[in-house]
């Protein structure tokens, strides 16, 4: 059977007609919607303050923090002039510093996020709609990275 086209399965080796391939195929609608969601957070028609390139840089940064260097590299390819931000160890000065600091804590330590973090973004002049866009990008990447890590673990075990 053919597997659904989704980046969630990139880098996952799955034997055709295996029990894993069958289980993934039975959930093809979920993988298709995952692909649609990835487009919506990374390449939306309405970008607000965050360009496609910046979104890919932020996604690369989150993928790297989640131990997925190949996913990080693929997002970094779309990061254009923001490619330097893909390195999670790099926190540059300037307007984006507060955005990166927010994205870093939401990605790695969401339990530590307080109302002050959101108020800080608002105080820096970032619109509420753009704060929601940042949270959705971060949240989707948390889902996608865990889905990919879990499927790779499962595929490695099945091979």
């Amino acid at each position: 059977m053919s597997l659904p086209a989704t980046t969630a399965l990139d880098g996952v080796t799955i034997a055709p007609s295996s029990a894993l391939a069958e289980a993934i195929g039975a959930r093809d609608a979920i993988f298709a919607m995952t692909r649609t969601a990835e487009e919506a957070v990374l390449r939306p028609a309405e970008t607000g303050a965050w360009s496609h390139a910046l979104r890919h840089a932020l996604a690369a940064r989150i993928a790297a923090r989640n131990g997925l260097p190949d996913l990080a590299a693929r997002h970094a390819e779309g990061a254009g002039e923001h490619a330097g931000l893909a390195d999670p160890g790099h926190l540059p000065d300037g307007d984006l510093r507060i955005v990166l600091a927010f994205m870093d804590v939401v990605a790695a330590h969401p339990r530590d996020v307080t109302a002050a973090a959101v108020a800080g973004l608002q105080g820096a002049g970032i619109a509420d709609a753009d704060i929601v866009r940042l949270a959705e990008l971060n949240a989707f990447m948390a889902y996608h990275c865990r889905l990919i890590a879990g499927l790779r673990l499962l595929a490695g075990d099945s091979a």
Partner: peptide
Amino acid sequence: GWANRLMHVL
């Protein structure tokens, strides 16, 4: 992992 980062953050 997705839902928590919306509910708990926003």
